[in-house]
């Protein structure tokens, strides 16, 4: 079992039947990273909206399709023309949401806490490219999915949001109720490569701001 964070919290992968392993020769490494997740809606052509966001987050919303922006504290993924995913340090989601709503008061916008609805899994390892070819119909070659690009697509028979990290690994966001299916599929597909599950971690790799 992936270690749970506190007495009251069980993240989506807690119940997945995955033993923590310390295999250093695995072809695939997997870790669950835990953040608060906020869904953000608003009008990207409205300067007031953009400025309200910038005031709270100290970064500019990504406006280019399928891009992302990061600071030391926050990551923002472009999900659609008026749709973003904001990831915040776990435990701060309520406060950040409240701050955003205050800043956006009177504007047509929405800030919705979906922290419990999703899990973020980081995959790395020498066999990652082939594994992704088994599960994902999107072209995950680094030339097509470079660092910082965000893609919503399918993973086997469920949905996934992908982002390439600076170290070449891939962050995958999966829906809570599909996490068991996801881990079953991942174990099956990586059986020929070896799968090592790293303990869940509250921090995430530090990367610089990107647009």
């Amino acid at each position: 079992m992936i270690k749970c964070h506190s007495e009251t919290i069980r993240t989506p992968l807690c119940d997945a039947v995955l033993a923590i392993t310390s295999d250093t020769n695995a072809g695939i490494y997997m870790r669950e990273n835990t953040f608060g997740h906020l869904n953000l809606r608003g009008n990207p052509t409205d300067k007031a909206f953009l400025s309200s966001i910038e005031t709270v987050l100290a970064l500019n919303l990504p406006l280019i399709p399928c891009s992302s922006v990061r600071s030391d504290v926050f990551s923002v993924y472009w999900l659609g023309p008026s749709d973003w995913l904001l990831m915040v340090p776990i435990g701060t989601e309520s406060q950040v949401a409240a701050d955003l709503r205050d800043s956006l008061m009177g504007q047509h916008s929405a800030v919705v806490d979906i922290s419990s609805a999703q899990a973020l899994v980081n995959l790395s390892g020498v066999k990652l490219p082939e594994l992704l070819q088994k599960a994902i119909v999107y072209d995950c070659d680094p030339t097509h999915l470079p660092v910082g690009k965000v893609v919503q697509t399918t993973f086997a028979k469920t949905g996934v949001t992908l982002c390439r990290c600076e170290d070449g690994s891939i962050d995958l966001i999966i829906c809570r109720s599909f996490s068991d299916y996801f881990t079953l599929w991942l174990r099956d597909a990586s059986a020929e490569y070896g799968l090592a599950v790293v303990d869940a971690c509250l921090s995430r790799p530090k990367v610089s701001a990107q647009t």
């Binding site: 399709p65 399928c66 659609g80 119909v137 999107y138 919503q152 697509t153 399918t154």
Partner: peptide
């Protein structure tokens, strides 16, 4: 909107 080609299954 995403400004790229995607597979029909999406």
């Amino acid at each position: 909107y995403c400004q790229e080609l995607r597979e029909e299954t999406e």
